[in-house]
Write a protein that binds this DNA or RNA. Structure first.
Lengths: 196, 196
DNA sequence: TCATAAAGATACCACTTAGTATTTTTGCAA
DNA sequence: TTGCAAAAATACTAAGTGGTATCTTTATGA
């Protein structure tokens, strides 16, 4: 049962790419099987419905990426303000998996599927909560270690920062230029300094 | 030529509502004519294509709303920091045209149509630039009047704030609760204070 | 008031959609 | 090597999709 697993993974990966670029609703199963060179029979052998595949993309593609690229970097640095800034910099500027013209996959998904599809909503909420938790923990630790003022509300700051990230991803789509990212990062640095 | 204008406006308004709730691509013309009680012949008399209608929604529904609800409030107050905070508060908490579970119409549109449709991209970009300009001007004025530090970069701050707004709209969709708005507003207040 | 164009109604088209039923091929355990 | 289930291929369906062609009704300016 090796080749079958490979087929399944190919579908998920190629489908993710298409969806990231075109959106979920406008990516048809025919599109997916055309680019994967997998037949409809094979597709429906691996996934009962299109939505089942969509949810699998979230849990098997997006979730690991979140852990590796969004959460771990927060835990490997001592100064949480640097950690957050560097994370954002790496996500926006260096990461070559994420493209400025296509925005943030999770944010795109949320925009498109919420509040209509409860399953997607739930899966995406879990993702977001994981990131929120990681960032909040980082900030709390920073308060203890004296990197951040004691009166800073960690949850509040986390939400503020994450909103900024999602928003600037949208801005990037609109302007199709990383320039906006640089502008955002400069002000993010100022904001983070104000938490010292 | 009164009744015809009314028909056209009904189509735009009802279509906007459907699109705001369901998204552009998933709102079919059949949906629109069903809820407006307008026949297909009438629809296509007023709009050559679905996209022409979509663009008309941006210029005839979204644009006036932007001017009235997003830009004017910035110009009617002397303290720009208060103006910005109050604007956000009114948009997020008081405005009953915008619903937490459906996010921000302009942001939804951007997410869905960009970068695929150049016309939509362009129209939405103009909207955004208008808001950006208004906010930047407000901040610059505040610098002159001593409400804001001279070393603050107006464009940068504008982008940071607008990103936050878009992002928290996405958060609201995800959690379907205005609680996140309140959290965001608290930190926005802190951030704005840091510009004094 | 009535001719004429604007506005709206109806039926249809070619194409795409997610999904299914049925058959065929493949890989592997015995 | 073969039996058999797992995996994949093929052909199809019913319900939509945006859009068009053609007809009928309505309003209004002379």
């Amino acid at each position: 049962m090796k080749k079958a697993e490979a087929t399944r993974l190919t579908i998920l990966q190629k489908a993710f790419e298409l969806i990231y670029v075109k959106g979920y609703q406008t990516t048809s199963i025919d599109d997916i099987i055309a680019t994967t060179q997998v037949t409809k029979g094979a597709f429906y052998y691996h996934f009962k419905t299109k939505d089942e595949m969509g949810l699998a993309i979230i849990s098997e593609i997006l979730k690991p990426t979140l852990t590796n690229s969004f959460i771990q970097p927060l835990q490997n640095e001592q100064n949480p303000l640097d950690a957050i800034y560097n994370l954002m910099h790496s996500l926006l500027i260096e990461n070559e998996f994420l493209k400025v013209e296509y925005g943030c996959p999770a944010s795109n998904f949320t925009q498109e599927m919420t509040p209509w599809n409860a399953d997607f909503n739930n899966a995406l909420n879990q993702l977001t909560q994981q990131w929120t938790k990681a960032m909040t923990t980082t900030i709390e630790k920073g308060k203890k270690n004296g990197f951040i003022r004691k009166d800073v509300n960690a949850k509040q700051v986390t939400m503020f920062i994450m909103s900024g990230y999602w928003g600037i991803r949208n801005f990037g789509k609109l302007e199709n230029s990383k320039k906006v990212y640089l502008t955002y990062l400069k002000e993010l640095k100022n904001y983070l300094s104000s938490l010292k």
